[in-house]
């Protein structure tokens, strides 16, 4: 039997004159944790809505678990877990009521599928009598995930589940997703945070409605062609533009406190650059050779 869970071929969708999705194709095997990385407005939400049968594509076809998203939308809706981008639970219902409501309308009960959600639900269970509107951002997302999982879907679509969630909760959330994989659920997740990409099995980089690259995170890093130095000093913004102007530099990106300088392998000598910067009046110049992280690769891909 075909082992592909999601097949998207040549999907396009316009909103008025804006191209939200432009000839997008990809495939996701069953049980994979597939990530969509891209800035706001890249078309992630539109893609998720098409797969969740909420929006019709203008062109192209897509199927989920063998069901066409246009013709068989009713069948897809039975096997699908969906967590929309904005928090969409009932604020005036308690945690428990929200969960049991979603269980009921999908024709199941909390008890029946408790195993699937128990790792996540245990963390919010102490607050189960609390109204959903009064939960913290991280807890709301955990509850939303529980609600999306309660009917044991074959596929779940999580549209930016970690946006607006603190760093610790984000990590916990990804931890849960990785554990869910063991239940052989296909998980498609989108995020604007590039560092989360390395936690997926495969990632697609999406920008302006087009997929730039689909690959395993390790491969994306392995494909990185440039050598990379991290440069730190005072006067950060001037440093960025000075580095950019330095001959032989391919690109400069700011990552927290340091500037990542990319250049063709062996095109630069570290001592030359240090001397140049000290000469230009920078104090405490620190330059280190670093291994590219997934963010470096994305910055590179996105600037192409």
């Amino acid at each position: 039997m075909n082992n592909l869970s999601i097949i998207v071929s040549n999907i396009s969708r316009n909103y008025d004159s804006v191209k939200a999705l432009d000839d997008v194709s990809f495939e996701v095997p069953r049980g994979e944790l597939f990530g969509f990385i891209g800035p706001d407005g890249a078309g992630k939400t539109t893609l998720f809505r098409i797969l969740a049968t909420l929006v019709l594509p203008d062109k192209g076809t897509a199927s989920v678990e063998g069901f066409d998203v246009v013709k068989d939308f009713k069948k897809i809706r039975k096997i699908l877990g969906y967590m929309p981008g904005r928090f969409s639970l009932y604020m005036d219902l308690s945690v428990e009521e929200n969960l049991s409501f979603y269980a009921t309308i999908f024709g199941t009960t909390i008890k029946e599928n408790y195993d699937l959600i128990k790792d996540i639900y245990r963390q919010i269970e102490p607050f189960k009598k609390r109204m959903a509107g009064q939960l913290s951002g991280g807890m709301k997302q955990k509850l939303a995930l529980c609600c999306a999982l309660i009917h044991k879907p074959a596929v779940i679509f999580l549209d930016e589940p970690t946006t607006g969630v603190d760093a610790v909760s984000r990590m916990e959330f990804w931890e849960m997703l990785r554990r869910l994989k063991e239940s052989n659920i296909t998980i498609m997740v989108s995020t604007p945070y590039m560092d989360e990409a390395s936690l997926c099995d495969r990632v697609a980089l999406i920008q302006d409605g087009k997929i730039m690259k689909i690959s395993r995170p390790e491969e994306i890093i392995a494909d990185y062609r440039y050598q990379l130095w991290a440069v730190r000093s005072g006067r950060f913004f001037e440093l960025l533009s000075d580095l950019h102007a330095y001959p032989g530099v391919h690109s400069v990106h700011a990552f927290g406190q340091s500037a990542h300088v990319a250049f063709n392998k062996s095109a630069l000598l570290m001592d030359d650059l240090r001397r140049h910067l000290i000469h230009a009046g920078y104090a405490d110049v620190v330059i280190e050779e670093i291994r590219p992280a997934i963010e470096d690769c994305f910055m590179e891909l996105m600037s192409q």
């Binding site: 909420l54 809706r77 969409s88 604020m91 979603y102 999908f106």
Partner: peptide
């Protein structure tokens, strides 16, 4: 407005 309609639509209701 709340976006819960999105989930109701996706449900088998």
């Amino acid at each position: 407005e709340l976006g819960t309609m999105e989930l109701l639509l996706v449900s088998p209701l």
